[in-house]
Design a protein around this nucleic acid. Structure first.
Lengths: 134, 134
DNA sequence: TGGCCAACTTACCAAGAGGTGGCTACTTAC
DNA sequence: GTAAGTAGCCACCTCTTGGTAAGTTGGCCA
């Protein structure tokens, strides 16, 4: 089974294809719909406030945004700073660890933007084939 | 920005941060837990049979595997070939479009494998902080 | 005749995702 | 006095996700 060495800094070898692998869980978390968008936003715009994120990530509910930000914070990807000013101001930004995720995530989002046409066409063709067969 | 040439020749510009954007849906589909693993497997091992995939992607149920493969097929990422041999043999492989996803996906899975330690440590620290605060 | 294989498909059910709306505390502005 | 704004939390409720398990198809072998 996956040999894991923690705090000591020894190497851990994990297998994504094994159930219960923590890397698999992590992958699932960062592959989450809202996580990708929030991380992308923070990557592009830098430090942002809660309402800015809510407005820029269209369609996210406050609950989901809070939940997503909390998870990212607990994973060490996002830093949350509370300013004790008079209307309370909270700012979010990527941590160093979060920064390292920018490139992989951007690769994925760019792929998505660039190949949406092809995928849409493929779906239409697939649907047509299915209808023809039925 | 995302200016894409469609079949008709018209340019479509999509914004991931807009609700209902097809690219966002697509991102969600390929960011799916099982999709990532299945695509990864097909990328590494090449053409594979149903049961091979089921065995190699530990923990996936037949239902989910079928569902995932169907979605990937309809999206034009995976090619499904049925051999009318005696016990029916079905093989799956990446299409050309699917191949273009390998690099972005590998970037993500490698990130995940490489940073699991740090994330686990961050979670522990966060939990400790929360406990201390409570 | 009966059972077996692959690759599903379907029915059923529990858990969780995620939306809505109300509540908070604090202060400034009307 | 009251409304508004910030950054949430909480309870409630619904809809989806996804797991389990059983059925199916269709030649073939004993």
């Amino acid at each position: 089974m996956p040999a894991v060495e923690t705090v000591t800094g020894a190497t851990a070898s994990w297998d994504l294809y094994e159930r219960g692998c923590p890397s698999r869980d992590l992958l699932d978390r960062i592959g989450d719909k809202w996580s990708i968008l929030v991380l992308g936003e923070l990557g592009e715009h830098g430090r942002s406030r809660f309402t800015e994120l809510r407005n820029r990530v269209s369609g996210v509910s406050e609950k989901m945004l809070t939940q997503t930000l909390r998870a990212l914070e607990s994973d060490g990807l996002v830093l949350r700073t509370v300013h004790a000013t008079v209307p309370v101001r909270v700012e979010y930004e990527l941590t160093d660890l979060g920064q390292t995720l920018r490139a992989p995530l951007r690769a994925l989002t760019e792929w998505s933007l660039q190949h949406t046409d092809e995928v849409l066409a493929a779906r239409a063709a697939y649907a047509a084939r299915a209808e023809h067969g039925a």
